[in-house]
Each structure stands twice: as C-alpha cells, then as structure tokens.
Write a protein that binds this DNA or RNA. Structure first.
Lengths: 173, 173
DNA sequence: TATTGTTATACTCTATAACTATA
DNA sequence: TATAGTTATAGAGTATAACAATA
C-alpha cells in the first residue's frame, strides 16, 4: 500500500467553507441512498417506491402527477413505479370522483404495514447517517434541509419535465 | 386549473420532523444539480467535470483513482471524464515519478482560468439556492453537511465500486 | 384545446468484466 | 499477486414523443 502517492489532505478541502456545497450534498445524498437501498431492497422501486408508498399511507390521496411533481420523478416513471407497487398489493389506483382523469394513489392495509416497518428501519439508518452530529445538530440539519426543500419545491415543482431548464439556458449562449 | 383535486397539504409533510430526510436531501440535491447544470453546460462532464477540475486546480495532484473515490465516481467513468477535460485542454495527465501506474491529474493554465470563472458563478447559484436561509443558517448548513460528508467519506470511500453493498445485503435475506 | 395517464422508442448512464502496464 | 488505468459490452435508467380518455 504505497502511502507516498496519496496526498495527506483531500483535494477539495481547501474550499471547505466557500463553495463545494455540491460535493458535500452529493456525498451525503449518495450515502443516504446506499443505506436506504439496503433496507428497501425488496420494495419495488427502492427509495422512490418507498416515497410513493409513504405519500399514499400518510397524506390525503394524491394524483399520480401530483406525486411525480413532489418527488421529482417523471410522470412516465411514476406509471411504472405504481404499476410495480400495485402488482405486489401495496397500493391501489382509484379514479377521482370529481375528475376521472386523475387517479388517486391509496395504500392497502398491507401497504400500511410494510411502510410502518420500513419507516422504522429507515429512521434507524438515518440516525446512523447523522451519527457524527449531536442531537441538536441533527434536528437543526433536518430543519434547514426541509426549509430549503419546501422552498425549492414551490419555486420549481419539477415542471413535469425539464422544459424550463432549456428555456433558461437558451439565452445564456 | 381544478384546484379541488389537489390536496392543500403535501402528502409527506406530516412526517416533516421525523423521517423524510431522504426526500429533503433529494429535492435540494436535484435543485442544486439543475442550477449547476445550467452554469456548467459548456464544461465537459458537467458538475462532475467541474469537481475534477476543481481538485486539479486547488489541491495537491491526485491520481485518478483517488479522485474517483473522493467524488463518488466509478474509475471507468473517471477515465472518460478526464479524457474529455484533456481534449479541451483543461487538465493534463502526468505519470507519477515514484509509481508510474498512477497518473496525476493537473490543471492547465486555461483550466485554472475556467475554473475560477465558473466557481464564481457557482457561488452565486449556491447563494440563490440557499436564499431562504439567513447568512448564519447558510454557514451552519454548509458546516453540518461538510462534517457529515467528511465522515461518510472516511467510513466508506466508495470502495471503488459497490461490492460492499451486496456483501451486506447478502446476510439480510 | 388542455390535462392525466399510458405506452413505445431511443438515448444516456452505469456497472461489469477483460485487458495492459506497472509494482 | 495486486493495483492503476483503459476499453468494450450489456443492462438499467431516463427522456421523448405519440396516443387515449376526460375535462
């Protein structure tokens, strides 16, 4: 193991307090995904399948497109996701009484049970991910991230797909 | 716009202070990527190309594999990334004098200029992303994320690829 | 005409493995 | 034998467009 060729300091650490927000976000997000993937291995759709299931269990019934926007998923992908969850009997589609174009996604009894169990395991995994932080810091981080996420959601609810991006980039060149 | 079919409250908000860390991380990370992609449209490799360039400009020269581990990129992808950056003349590969298997990635003069310019634009974009937060909260969030990222990095430096994951999942079933 | 949801196609990423060159 | 890097292939994931049903 040739330690001489590995620099002692990580390359990007010098900008630790300036930029590099993207690097930290990426590392933390990937670490979360890796932990979540282990737990959600059996669940169709993995972490995203769980988020759909969570929405179906917890909140008021939502249409597929509303879910897609909130979770940052393309509406076509949402179709496949719900297909798989429905096959296993975790959620059901119901036509909205007032607008039959919308299909509400509701959880089955089994879906609720599975969600509660996996939610518990996810909580444990999240605690491990936040391990280096004090309880107060964990709460602070969760709160800050949620504030940002809610705002980002309001500003740009994924816009169904990414038309907006190309519109904006167009006048930069 | 039929507002009656859209529930007033987002579905996952009820768990806002419990779980849902993954949702918030995902939303914020995607928002960052979207903003960064606009800025880094010209740069080969997008955000990841920029991170490689940043490492080459800022720190001590690192081998490709060290970069790959730090940035959470597969070593084969790193090859393509550096290929593209080298074609455009932003970085160069140099054989390490002590171990010629390693190739150090160093920035060219032009690479340094480009990096400085884009870094400035990224700083601006990050400020906009963190817009809802007070200056103190921004610093706090950056600090918390960096602490987590550095720790996650030490615990699991991407392990070149994802062997570890399957090892661990194996004894769960 | 506009919107929800579905399907099919093409494309981009990514993982995997096989290979080389150095050690 | 083990590691750094490269290349080629196959598979997963994603975007795009076209379509049907409803409003």
């Amino acid at each position: 193991m040739p330690s001489s060729v590995e620099p002692a300091q990580p390359a990007s650490a010098s900008a630790a307090d300036g930029g590099d927000l993207g690097w930290a976000l990426g590392v933390v997000f990937r670490a979360y995904l890796k932990a979540a993937d282990r737990i959600l291995d059996d669940l169709p759709g993995g972490p995203r399948g769980h988020q759909v299931l969570a929405a179906a269990v917890q909140g008021a019934p939502q249409s597929q497109i509303a879910l897609a926007r909130r979770l940052g998923i393309d509406k076509t992908v949402m179709t496949y996701l719900i297909d798989d969850l429905e096959k296993v009997g975790l959620v059901e589609r119901r036509a909205h009484p007032d607008d039959r174009r919308h299909k509400q996604v509701v959880a089955t009894e089994q879906g609720s049970r599975i969600w509660a169990a996996t939610r518990q395991r996810l909580d444990h995994a999240e605690d491990q991910l936040l391990g280096p932080l004090s309880p107060a810091d964990r709460t602070e981080l969760r709160s800050l991230l949620h504030r940002l996420a809610e705002r980002a959601q309001r500003i740009d609810p994924v816009a169904d797909t990414c038309q907006i991006v190309s519109d904006i980039t167009a006048d930069q060149h």
